[in-house]
Amino acid sequence: MIKLQSIDQIQDEIIEEFEEFSDWEEKYSYLIEQGVELPKIDANCKVKDNLVMGCQSQVWLIPDYDKKNQVMLFKADSDSMIVKGLISLLLRMYSEQKPEDILSTELYVFEQIGLKGHLSPSRANGLSAMIRDIKKFSFAFNNNSNN
């Protein structure tokens, strides 16, 4: 599988969806709903090795590389509903994308939808730690596939 939309197109799509909400309650309800709909990961994936370091809630991130289509695949989960919501946005943008695209795209979506605060490294949910790991894995697979 490969995504037809670019990361930027998805960012714009998310921004459009969030524009409909006038207050924080609706915004967070929508975000949480996105997380609830995220496919569950196997219990045996919830191991220490898959934990994202630097998150105060538990976040598991499992990367994979689809050789045939040359795209990254990500699965992730968290015990926090808000973090799951944020994860769902990340996976929607980054899963099934080429590593070089993941590495070269700038994120502006969180700023635009008023969740920029979540990007601060000291923030409990560790969104920035997840993005860091997604890029790290993409970098690793990108290098491997180039060799």
Binding site: W24, Y28, Q56, S80, M81, I82, V83, N125
Partner: peptide, 21 residues
């Protein structure tokens, strides 16, 4: 049923500082 950090996040959004951890 609710993760403390989740509540902390929403309260922070509302200008309330409590501690989670």
């Amino acid at each position: 049923g609710i993760h403390p950090h989740d509540l902390g996040t929403l309260l922070d959004e509302l200008g309330i500082a409590i501690r989670i951890g």
